[in-house]
Design a binder for these strands. Structure first.
Lengths: 185, 185
DNA sequence: GGCGTTGGTCAACGCTTGTTGGCAACGGTA
DNA sequence: TACCGTTGCCAACAAGCGTTGACCAACGCC
C-alpha cells in the first residue's frame, strides 16, 4: 500500500479529534471545531470517516499495551500494573478521551466495556488464583485505576493531581495486588 | 412561608432534571426533554430557574450525609464509609448525575471539587493521623469510591454491577481504611 | 364586580449542530 | 495535451438547541 497524499490530512484530523474528545467529551467536541484544529473543512471529516461516530471509532482505537505478567515476581504485579497505568495516562490523552466519552455516551460506555473484557480480563486471569473470581477481581482493579484517572485527569481534584508517580505506586500498588491475589475476604 | 401552588411544578421539574442529568449528562439532557418529562412547557423551566445552568445547580444540591466517625471504632471507619456510599448510590441517582456531569462539564467538575473539599475532607480530618496528609489520603479514598461508582453506574461494567453490598464492603473497606489510617508507605 | 398577581401555553428568535452535494484546483498517466 | 481520479473548499440543508416575550386563564383581595 503506497502512501496517499491524503494520509497527512487523515492523521491531522485524528490528532485533533483525540484532543477534542479528551478535552470536551463526545457532544461538545464538534466536527467543526475538530476541522478547525486540523485546518481543514468540516466536510472532509465526513468524507474520510463517514460520520461523527465513525470518527470517534477511528480516533480512539485504544490499546492499553498491558505488560505480560508471567515474568513479574508475584508480589510485584500490583505495583507493576499501577506504574504502567500512570505512565500510559501521563503520556497520551487517548485514555482520557475514552473515559470522558464513556461517561457521556452509550457507544463510549460500550467501548470501555470492550476494553475491560479484552484487555484487562486476560491479564487478571494470569495472576488470579480462582478462575471463577477473575471478573469480580478485575472489576475491582478497574474501579481503583479508573477512579484514579477520573479524579486526576477528568475532575482534576487538586490533591489527586499533586501525587507523584512513586506515591501512587506505593499507595495503589498494594490495593491492586490484594484485589488480584489475596484470598477472598 | 406558605406553600405556593407552583411548588408541585417546581418539584416535578427538579425530579425530571435529576433523572435526565443522571441518564444523559449535561449536554444531552435538554431543557425540552426535561420539560416534556415534567409535562410542562420549556419556558417554565426558564422562568423558575433562569437558565440551564441554574436548573442544574438547583437540581443537584448534593449532600453526602456523611456519618460522624467519632463514635465509630477506629478499625471500622473504612467499612462504614464504603457501606454508606453504596447505600447512598443505590437509593438515588443524584450522585450519578453529578458524576456524569462532572465528567463532561467544567461547572460540573467544579461542583465535584467543592463536594470533595467541603464534605469528604472534614471527615478525613477526623481520622487521619497526620493533618498534613489529609488531602492526599482523602483523594485516594475519593478515587476508590468514585471509581466504583463510575464502573458500576456509569460505564456499567457487568462484573462491577454483580457485586453485592457486603462483598463491596468486604473488598473496599480495608482499602479505604488503609488510605485513611495506615502509616504512609 | 373589577383588578393585580400568579401559573401556564404558544410561537418565534438566533444560533449551532451534523450532514450533503456541487464545483474548482491539482497530479499522475496515456 | 487531454483526461480522470483525488483532494479540497463553499454554501446550503433540516433539525435541534437555549431563550424570549406576548398572550390567556384562574385565583385572591379590595
Amino acid at each position: 500500500m503506497t502512501a496517499r497524499r491524503s494520509d497527512a490530512t487523515r492523521a491531522a484530523i485524528l490528532d485533533a479529534a483525540r484532543d477534542r474528545f479528551a478535552a470536551d467529551g463526545y457532544e461538545r467536541a464538534t466536527i467543526r471545531a475538530i476541522a478547525r484544529d486540523a485546518r481543514i473543512d468540516p466536510s472532509m471529516v465526513m468524507r474520510y470517516f463517514g460520520s461523527k461516530e465513525g470518527l470517534f471509532a477511528a480516533a480512539v482505537a485504544l490499546d492499553l499495551r498491558l505488560p505480560d505478567l508471567a515474568p513479574v515476581p508475584r508480589e510485584e504485579v500490583g505495583r507493576t500494573l499501577v506504574g504502567h497505568f500512570v505512565d500510559l495516562w501521563e503520556e497520551n490523552d487517548e485514555l482520557t478521551a475514552v473515559l470522558r466519552v464513556g461517561a457521556t455516551n452509550e457507544a463510549g460506555a460500550k467501548r470501555m466495556q470492550g476494553i475491560f473484557r479484552e484487555q484487562l480480563l486476560p491479564v487478571a486471569r494470569q495472576v488470579c488464583p480462582d478462575p471463577e473470581q477473575v471478573p469480580a477481581r478485575a472489576a475491582l482493579c478497574a474501579a481503583q485505576l479508573l477512579g484514579l484517572a477520573l479524579t486526576r485527569y477528568v475532575l482534576r481534584l487538586a490533591p489527586a493531581r499533586a501525587l507523584h508517580r512513586e506515591e501512587l505506586v506505593a499507595w495503589l500498588g498494594p490495593t491492586v495486588q490484594r484485589y488480584l491475589t489475596a484470598p477472598s475476604p
